[in-house]
Design a protein around this nucleic acid. Sequence first.
DNA 1: AATAGTGCTTCAGTGCCATAATACAGCGCG
DNA 2: CGCGCTGTATTATGGCACTGAAGCACTATT
Lengths: 113, 113
Amino acid sequence: MSNQTKPVYLKLRDQIAAAIIDGRYQEEEMLPSVRALAAEQGANPLTVAKAYQQFQADGLVEVQRGVGMYVARGAAEKLRKREKETFLSQEWPEITARIKRLGLKPDELLAAV
Amino acid sequence: MSNQTKPVYLKLRDQIAAAIIDGRYQEEEMLPSVRALAAEQGANPLTVAKAYQQFQADGLVEVQRGVGMYVARGAAEKLRKREKETFLSQEWPEITARIKRLGLKPDELLAAV
DNA sequence: AATAGTGCTTCAGTGCCATAATACAGCGCG
DNA sequence: CGCGCTGTATTATGGCACTGAAGCACTATT
């Protein structure tokens, strides 16, 4: 139903966000460089840069030109809070409507976990 | 988080599917014509045709050329079953993973309904 | 100064989406 | 038949997002 062909930079963005929330990218620590992550993921450096870009616009990642990027203090908590809110206010209502429409019951949902 | 810029023909497709499942488009009944729906939705007739096309390919909608399209018998049930399976196998696992990552609790989810 | 590592800017190419203008093909009805 | 309604095919065009390649700007290290 949904997108099986999601743009690469969005996949990377989600993946990076998850790594920050999970603490795999610690705060105040360096992030993988654009080129390094690009090589690791088999993507173009520019595409990776585009993924990083949204984080620095939100102040979650700070840039030292010529040096690299690091995770801002409190980024994990801020990110989790932000995603929590958008999830509850935007995605979850659609999901529940969908569940209701399809006539799915709680035990079917739990069985699929 | 998700796509706010979903292609028009996909939006129409989802919308039509929902109408069939909910019974707003009754089985054995005529669907709105390509041109009519296009005018109503402010879209191009070709775009609407593209949305319809996937349904006839799946046998959910049958075409009488020169007359119009109607919903096939059993289409609602077939459609619901198909969406049910893809939802459980593909979307739901991602959703539960997301819920877990964000640390959302059951009462928070229920409160948002 | 030289080098190598950063992120960033610019230009170009590709493909999908949406639209438009026609034209064609089948059906029903007066 | 003639008219008006259906869906369909063709071709062309504009726009937009994604991806990519080369080069520029900055910093740290030697």
